[in-house]
Design a protein around this nucleic acid. Structure first.
Lengths: 123, 123
DNA sequence: TGCCTTACTTACTTTTTTGTAGGTTTTGTT
DNA sequence: AACAAAACCTACAAAAAAGTAAGTAAGGCA
């Protein structure tokens, strides 16, 4: 028997967005204006490496979520932007984002370090 | 600087559902009736191991998505069901599922083995 | 000629996630 | 006394994802 998850649209959708940097990339592109490689690379305070950026971009492209446009110049210029499918995807994020807000509110209670916990118990 | 993704509700939400068996578990529980451990373990044709089932259940529980109820019997009986938060989450899956359907339609074209590809080109 | 820029590769290591194959507990039944 | 059933747990191994540190191409400019 084959893996039914390969045929589940939901699983497939979740997989398409669950690379470590994909949501970041999508958030950068979601304003509609195309972004260059270096622009994506540098717009985060975190350690997004070239290897990771490239691999995540490739996967998003293969999945039809973003497009890659190469300008024949030297030094090269490459711009990335959302496809129609990618835009639809981003629109869907809204309710998930809302759920995440609630989630974070609730999780907070369990994750406090012991000092804060103690102080809270006093009030 | 701290990792902003830890503070992004969307990232956090996606993380909460991206374990290998979580969507399967949620789909099993989404009809509202509680499910036992073995029931979850056996309702798939795939190789869901006890270790994996347990770890995924624990994570979903920790994330407030499901509840775990132990009945003090021998042999033990443990039932899992969705929390209110889990139900909300499942409701959100609808549009993602729809997107996944579209995605699969489009991906098909790129993933066909060469034989089918060739045949399609003839028509 | 040698250096600069951008957008990448590639080989290798580390970390994280899954898988495998065992063992444990607690009563009831044979 | 031995065995069964359900829901686990544990140590170790394999696989997948991510990180590190280098190298590459191509034309413009000093």
């Amino acid at each position: 028997m084959r893996d039914p998850r390969l045929h589940c649209p939901l699983t497939v959708a979740v997989k398409a967005i669950s690379g470590k940097w994909k949501l970041y990339i999508l958030s950068m592109l979601s304003d509609g204006t195309p972004k260059r490689y270096t622009e994506l690379l540098k717009s985060t305070c975190e350690n997004l490496t070239e290897k990771m950026l490239t691999s995540q971009l490739r996967e998003l492209e293969k999945d039809g979520i973003i497009t890659r446009k190469v300008y024949p110049e030297v030094p090269p210029r490459v711009e990335y932007m959302l496809t129609a499918s990618g835009k639809k995807l981003c629109a869907i994020f809204e309710p998930l984002y809302e759920w995440g807000m609630e989630y974070m509110k609730n999780q907070r209670h369990e994750k406090l370090p012991w000092l804060e916990m103690g102080l809270r118990e006093l009030s």
